[in-house]
C-alpha cells in the first residue's frame, strides 16, 4: 500500500496512513460500494455481473465475502472465480468458464443480476448508452446499445451512476437502450415477463422504481447529501418516500471497511471513480 491511498473522507478523520482501516469514517466511494453491494442481497447462487470499473466489481465481491456468500463473480473477462481476488488481481482459483457466447446465453436464461451504467436515464428507468442527439446522425456516438435491451428484459437489472446530474437524469433519453417500466409495459407481456429494475445507486443517493407506474423514487441519501441536492441533480420530478423523511444510506460496517481497504482494493481505485 502506498500513501496515495489516503482519500479524503467525509467528515472528520478518515482512513489512516496507508489506507488501513483505523475506524475512520467511510468515504463516499465506500458508501457507494456498499449501496451497490446491497443490490445483490438475497440473490443467492446467481452471477453478479458488474459492468466494469471499480465500484460495481467491488460491490459484487464485497457482497460475496459478506452477506451473499453463494454469489457467483467473474474476473471481468470470461473466468468465474473460485476465490475473491482484489481488484485488478487474477484469481488463484477458477470455478467456471463464461466466454462471451455463454454470457449472452446466460442473459437469456436469467440466473444473473446485472449492474449497468447509463449515459442518460429517465423517470421510468429507460437508459441510453448508444448515442447523444438524433440517432440518424448523432451529435455524439457512444458505445451502441450493447446488451442493454436484452439485459433489461431478461435479467434483474440495477444501475450504477457515478455522477448524478441533470445531464444524466433526463426527462427523455435520446435512444432507449435499456428498457424502463413504461416502455416494457407498452411492448407487452413478453417484455414485462422478466423485466425487473431493482435499484439505481449514484454518488449521491439510492433510488428505486417504487412510485406509481414504475416511476423513480428516492430511497435514501448518502451521508453528507441532502434531499435538495438530489432533487436539484435530477432532471425530472422525483418521487420521495412516503412519510416525508428520507433515510440515510447505511454506512459500511467496520468489517466491510476492512475488507475494502485491506483485501479488495488496497490501491483505492474506488476513489478514482468517486472522489471525496
Amino acid at each position: 500500500m502506498t500513501s496515495e491511498t489516503t482519500g479524503s473522507a467525509i467528515g472528520a478523520g478518515g482512513p489512516g496512513p496507508g489506507g488501513v482501516d483505523d475506524g475512520g469514517p467511510a468515504t463516499r466511494a465506500e458508501v457507494c460500494v456498499v449501496a451497490c453491494a446491497e443490490a445483490f442481497r438475497g440473490d443467492g447462487e446467481i452471477l453478479a455481473a458488474g459492468i466494469g470499473g471499480a465500484i460495481t466489481v467491488l460491490a459484487a465481491r464485497l457482497a460475496r465475502l459478506t452477506f451473499e456468500p453463494d454469489l457467483i463473480t467473474h474476473d471481468g473477462v470470461c473466468l468465474l472465480t473460485g476465490d475473491v481476488p482484489a481488484l485488478g488481481e487474477d484469481p488463484e482459483v477458477i470455478e467456471g468458464w463464461l466466454p462471451f457466447r455463454d454470457h449472452l446465453w446466460l442473459v437469456l436464461q436469467g440466473r444473473r443480476h446485472v449492474m449497468l451504467g447509463a449515459s442518460q436515464i429517465d423517470k421510468h428507468g429507460n437508459t441510453n448508452i448508444s448515442c447523444i442527439g438524433d440517432w440518424a446522425r448523432p451529435k455524439s456516438q457512444l458505445l451502441g446499445v450493447r446488451g442493454a435491451p436484452g439485459n433489461t428484459v431478461c435479467d434483474p437489472t440495477s444501475y450504477w451512476i457515478p455522477r448524478h446530474s441533470p445531464r444524466v437524469f433526463v426527462p427523455r433519453v435520446d435512444m432507449v437502450s435499456g428498457v424502463g417500466y413504461d416502455r416494457a409495459a407498452e411492448a407487452g407481456a413478453s417484455a414485462t415477463r422478466f423485466h425487473d429494475l431493482r435499484r439505481v445507486v449514484t454518488n449521491l443517493a439510492v433510488l428505486d422504481f417504487g412510485a406509481p407506474g414504475g416511476a423513480m423514487r428516492l430511497v435514501s441519501v448518502h451521508p453528507g447529501v441532502t434531499v435538495r441536492d438530489v432533487v436539484a441533480s435530477t432532471g425530472f420530478d422525483l418521487a420521495l418516500p412516503g412519510g416525508g423523511t428520507v433515510p440515510e444510506t447505511r454506512s459500511p460496517t467496520t468489517e466491510e471497511l476492512r475488507l475494502l481497504r485491506e483485501t479488495l482494493d488496497p490501491a483505492s481505485l474506488r476513489t478514482r471513480e468517486v472522489p471525496g
Partner: peptide
C-alpha cells in the same frame, strides 16, 4: 442488441430465416 446479433449469426449459420428472442423488445 448483442444477444440479438448472436441470434442473427446463429440463424445464418443454421440456414434459418430468423430466430426469436426477447432481446430488443421495448427498446429503440
Amino acid at each position: 442488441d448483442e444477444g440479438m446479433f448472436m441470434f442473427g449469426l446463429l440463424a445464418a449459420a443454421h440456414r434459418l430465416p430468423f430466430l426469436p428472442t426477447r432481446a430488443g423488445l421495448g427498446s429503440d
